[in-house]
Design a protein around this nucleic acid. Structure first.
Lengths: 137, 137
DNA sequence: CTAAAATCTAGAGTTCGCTCTAGGTCAACC
DNA sequence: GGTTGACCTAGAGCGAACTCTAGATTTTAG
């Protein structure tokens, strides 16, 4: 057992499938070319896993692959473009905040419906319910 | 100009495209069969628009079309299944809260990155930045 | 009356983000 | 040394949710 992680190790460590890892590589989402062993297998390092964990955060928070690729490209091309990286991250932060606000607004509507239905189920009050013939939403 | 809204009116009122409205109909997302005019055109009513606005909220908050179809089916089949509707809505509310929590957690990580880059850009501190050769994330 | 705009149906096409298959090679265990 | 299991490449396939096309009809405006 040498230094270096197999694709299976990385999959286990990141929650990504081996298919997804090969896909990420094709998409140019890594910070470096992943070297191969004598037998042609990918050999990863801990830093790759850390990067992938950040990628997971960015993906989970709704960043599209294309944007992630841009960010990876900026990081890959080394120091000097930190302003660009900052701008990209700030924009994503704005998007995430907007998405949270939107979800919170929807949540209030949905919770209102839940409360209405709870009252209906418990007290037989039908006011505010959607129904085809008798009562509306 | 009689009672009844054209598909274009409903598109304008809901923000959905006319294509999407026809698609929604094929998918069984309406609470009733939308009647046609003498010339074969869809004739909607205000209640359809209200339902679509709720659909928009549910869709924006991440409810899949399949679930929306189940909900529409419950409402369509009239009184008697309010417990099922309540359960469906509660489950969705749980999903939305979970999604908000996930986004909030990611937001903290992202905001941390933003702060790190801000410090770097303003003070030349590179600690905590991803870079290929010199400095890691 | 005519030309343009809106609508119709049926079905094909698109985008995103993987996921899976086929047909191998390579490595690890007993 | 053989057989299982992990891995390889290239490329096809998939599910979700629309979106668009084609070709015909209908409505509206001038």
């Amino acid at each position: 057992m040498e230094e270096g992680l197999s694709i299976g190790d990385v999959a286990a460590a990141t929650g990504l499938s081996v298919h997804a890892l090969r896909f990420f590589e094709r998409e140019g989402l890594f910070l470096r070319h992943i070297p191969r062993s004598a037998g042609g297998r990918r050999v990863y390092e801990a830093a790759d896993v850390e990067w992938l964990l950040l990628c997971n955060r960015l993906r989970e928070s709704g960043m599209p692959i294309a944007t992630l690729r841009r960010f990876a490209g900026l990081v890959r091309s080394g120091p000097g473009n930190e302003r660009d990286r900052l701008e990209l991250l700030r924009e994503h932060e704005r998007d995430v905040r907007a998405r949270i606000a939107e979800l919170t607004a929807s949540l209030e509507v949905i919770h209102g419906k839940v409360v209405t239905y709870e009252r209906h189920v418990e007290h037989g009050t039908a006011a505010g319910l959607w129904a085809p013939a008798p009562s509306p939403p």
